[in-house]
Design a binder for these strands. Sequence first.
DNA 1: AAACAAATCACCCTCTTGGGGGAATAGACG
DNA 2: CGTCTATTCCCCCAAGAGGGTGATTTGTTT
Lengths: 222, 222
Amino acid sequence: MSQEDQEAAGQDTPIRVLLVEDQPDTGESWRRLISSFPDFECGTVCGSAEEALEKVSEVVPGVILMDVFLPGMSGIECTARLKANHPEIPIVMLTASDEDEILFHALESGADGYLLKRTKPADLRAALLDVLSGGAPMTSEIARHVVASFRKPTSSAKDVSLTSREEETLVLLTEGYSNKEIADRLGIGVETVRSHLKNIYSKMHVRSRTEAVVQFMSRRPG
Amino acid sequence: MSQEDQEAAGQDTPIRVLLVEDQPDTGESWRRLISSFPDFECGTVCGSAEEALEKVSEVVPGVILMDVFLPGMSGIECTARLKANHPEIPIVMLTASDEDEILFHALESGADGYLLKRTKPADLRAALLDVLSGGAPMTSEIARHVVASFRKPTSSAKDVSLTSREEETLVLLTEGYSNKEIADRLGIGVETVRSHLKNIYSKMHVRSRTEAVVQFMSRRPG
DNA sequence: AAACAAATCACCCTCTTGGGGGAATAGACG
DNA sequence: CGTCTATTCCCCCAAGAGGGTGATTTGTTT
């Protein structure tokens, strides 16, 4: 049976919310706020993106609330990485500003909703329920910005479009070659290979050759 | 002349032999000897294991003659690595000695034949034809040593037997984790992870996490 | 003509990896 | 009781990998 359906209707098991917020005070107040809702619980507050990536598997949250500004890995990067491994968990970004730039990157990374930190308690709960039922909680003006300009990039987030050279580089990666060996085989310099790899990592939201290889090999069962 | 001899000898395209021998003089004399056979040609003499690994793809030899003692990577290591990627190419080891120790490692690595360097020209050609027709050229006494004690190890050379801890480490490798992340997840130190990895690499005949992951993922289509 | 994407390469820096040792402990096995 | 293996950790060192930033060239596209 579907958890979401139960939750939205109001039930006995509260939905686990994973909160990612670096400032302890803010995090704690959000935690308390969320826990005050009868249909939600927030037992875990991660102070960093890294911690969130680590704990998501054990917590298995129904929804993730992610601060945009985090020390180290940003909330945007973190969202992209979480989406790569847990696409089913909805993620709502939290931010104090409403700049377009940030909004774009946030949604590009796969975030499902975008809330301002000044959101009122009742609206937060509504947003949580909204995203759990497949909605995309955000202010209506933000929504218009988004739906228009980011339908394509966001939808194609799953199979990254690599350039031909990047593709070749990736293939050689999956054959276990080092950067130098790849460079030799492609007849280019090592720096160029590194350059391609940086782009590949960025597009695939990974940060090591091994992760890239794993994702690549998993996606094509051949 | 046997059937095989005729076929091999009757071919218009001589079989390419890749010779791996670090001593230029010795290599050149072997090269000339092989080229003197009408059914074989030896255009490439690699002075090192590394060179052999690099050139095998472009040369695509029908058979490889490998000296055991090479500077840097040994002929045994090289054989193991070649077999990992080109299992179809028969490899005959060459050595001056006939020590059991070496013989064992050589055949464990996947070599198909084992010749002494003092082998006579006619016998060399016979050995080449032999290994090409699926045989395992070696002196009869060596053969007995081998067939007896290495049936098991040699046959199980494909799926490496890892210890439970090494297995766990490998699995986490295939999930893209760094050494530190693996250490945290296993509740052990990074040095221990590195230690496990060294053993894994050694057993799998690879030398990077990426190669290990590729080989591991390829072997189990799951 | 101007803007853009792709591909190439450079230089900086830090951290990770790999390979070479060694060494201590605990358990299994004879 | 030694011997062996698995597991754990240590040190050193060189090479590789990753991240940031930026420059150049060559084609498209606008």
